[in-house]
């Protein structure tokens, strides 16, 4: 790697094009560190994600993108030996405040995973799962939600006649859209997407990308992706991470055309990663 020689001496410093203020930001991280046991995985992340926009997290494998994403709905709680410090806020409220209701928090954050993970039940039951766990019994409300979520995930036309069939009978791309429908069924504020297209073929991928475009505005979307073109196509802001640090954050257009840090340039132009 030629670029190693050109790493800037002040690597710990993040370069911001626009320092989004806390107002207008829905998620707000400040000097956020995370350790797996003794190994530090995130270093001093300070980042404000603006409401209603799409924010892409890019960076080479192991740079902490997914870890950061999973901190937002506290999925890292499931892993033993994780410790954090620093602050992470959603709408000004500390996510890691001991008094916070994690379950309520997760309901505000829909999450879509790398591989489609539909539940082994019917399509209908998959979509209304978030309502079911809240104990909703009202048939009309469930059906209404199901249709709204499936329409929102652009799956309604394909699935409306087979709602009673097993979700596992859908194709991979359809399954992933089903997972998106499930994630938006409870009407969250934020949609977290962890490489949602990495297991899909190009056609399914383009459908998901169109969908992200449509969902923009209604939800704040944070998407982790390995695919630079995808980040360029779908996002408004892009954060570049490297070895657990946030290197550069700014508008996507600038990030991909005129980044300020050489490392970012090297990565987006494909010189490493």
């Amino acid at each position: 790697m030629v670029s190693v020689a050109r790493i800037q001496p002040d690597e710990g410093e993040t370069h911001y094009h626009v320092r989004a203020g806390t107002e207008g930001a829905i998620i707000d991280a400040e000097n956020f560190n995370l350790f797996y046991g003794r190994k530090q995985a995130l270093f001093d992340i300070t980042l404000s994600v603006p409401r209603g926009l799409v924010c892409a997290l890019i960076g080479p494998s192991g740079c902490g993108k997914s870890t950061f994403l999973r901190c937002l709905n506290r999925m890292n709680d499931l892993i033993d030996n994780v410790t954090i410090n620093g602050t992470m806020r959603i709408e000004g409220r500390d996510l890691y405040d001991p008094g916070i209701d994690v379950i309520a928090l997760r309901k505000r954050m829909g999450m879509v995973f790398q591989k489609p993970n539909p539940f082994p039940m019917s399509i209908f039951e998959n979509v209304v799962y978030p309502l079911r766990i809240d104990g909703v019994r009202d048939r009309n409300l469930l059906e209404e939600t199901c249709e709204r979520a499936l329409r929102g995930a652009a799956l309604w036309d394909e699935a409306k006649d087979r709602l009673k069939e097993s979700a596992l009978s859908l194709s991979g791309g359809q399954q992933q859209r089903l997972c998106i429908a499930r994630a938006i069924a409870a009407d969250p504020e934020v949609l977290l997407m962890d490489e949602p297209c990495s297991a899909l073929d190009p056609i399914a991928t383009s459908k998901i990308e169109e969908l992200i475009d449509e969902l923009k505005g209604r939800y704040t979307i944070i998407i982790v992706t390995h695919n630079m073109q995808q980040a360029a196509r779908v996002s408004d802001n892009t954060a570049f991470m490297y070895l657990g640090r946030l290197i550069e954050f700014g508008e996507t257009e600038i990030m991909f055309t005129a980044p300020k840090v050489t490392k970012t340039l090297d990565y987006v132009t494909g010189r490493f990663g």
């Binding site: 499931l78 309520a104 997760r106 309901k107 829909g110 999450m111 539909p118 766990i133 994630a183």
Partner: peptide, 14 residues
């Protein structure tokens, strides 16, 4: 699979 469990937890299930 862990993915299915996480899917459920991410939906806000206990």
């Amino acid at each position: 699979p862990r993915s299915v469990r996480e899917g459920s937890l991410a939906c806000g299930a206990s």
